[in-house]
Amino acid sequence: MNDEKSTRTAFVNALEELFKLDERVVMVSADSVAVFRAKELQNKYPRRIVEAGIAEGSAVMIAAGLASAGLKPYVCAYAGFLTMRALEQMRTFVAYPRLEVKFFGANAGMCAGEREGVTHQFFEDLGIMRAVPGFTVFAPSDADDTYDLVKCAYETKGPVYCRIGSGRDPVVGRDRVLRAYGDDALILGCGAPLADACEAADELKAEGVKTTVLNVNVIKPLDEAFLKPFIARAGSVITIEDHNVFGGLGSAVCEIAGRKVTRLGLDDVYPESGTAQELKEKYHIAKSDVIKAVKQA
């Protein structure tokens, strides 16, 4: 079992750095201060955290208003309540006028919502946000990667949507190339399932099957120049994500691959309550599924 480190704490640590760097950076919360582990930050910088209450649509509009006057809002909410309930506000009032607002969605993925059940398991956010013109979409592999990408969001022009996990997130590594054993198969992943992909790659290597595992943490735009040579020389291509197989990383890779891609993810179904491990196994994004996919592809 991998070590754990919280993507939520990593988010807050990076945000504090940005608060220090630029006084125009503010956090906009939809009663998300506790969820994002930002209580201490709020005590330190009470004026920098705008609390809109449990009202995601209004929180996004308030952020648009703040950004129109020159502030740099970081909107924090549960991934689904943000990208589904407030999607229109994100599209029409932030992305369309190209305002500098960054969005962070917690509980992204089935496993991050685990025991809460479907209402709190959000596995459509990447597909939804990928479909909105003007958005850059991040899906960090782990806490350290989250820290880097929150800072990267600041440097990125225009709106950004970034996934944040459960707060009990496996340590994967922040590198783009996580395993480079060989080209029998290429495994492209994002987020926590990369931990399982790496374990699978290690086990396959012991059996003589040599794979490469890449951390694709920018879902839109895909870095085609970087990815295409890997895709071209691999014996088979597999994607893995804690997301519906429609719309997310797997779909994005299919758009550029020009060859067969085996997509691991939720098979267009609604999951249920359970532990993260149980859910991964039942809904086929576990280590065993990666091994099976590599052997069958």
Binding site: V26, R47, V50, G57, S58, M61, I62, A63, A64, G65, L66, A67, S68, A69, G70, L71, E88, Q89, T92, F93, Y96, P97
Partner: peptide, 25 residues
């Protein structure tokens, strides 16, 4: 034009953000 609009219902929330920005700045 200070704010994009036309999708009904959203103006008051945008204006709230603008007024809050005046306070913060």
């Amino acid at each position: 034009v200070d704010m994009t609009s036309g999708s009904l219902g959203n103006g008051l929330a945008a204006a709230t953000g603008m007024a809050l920005a005046a306070k913060l700045l």
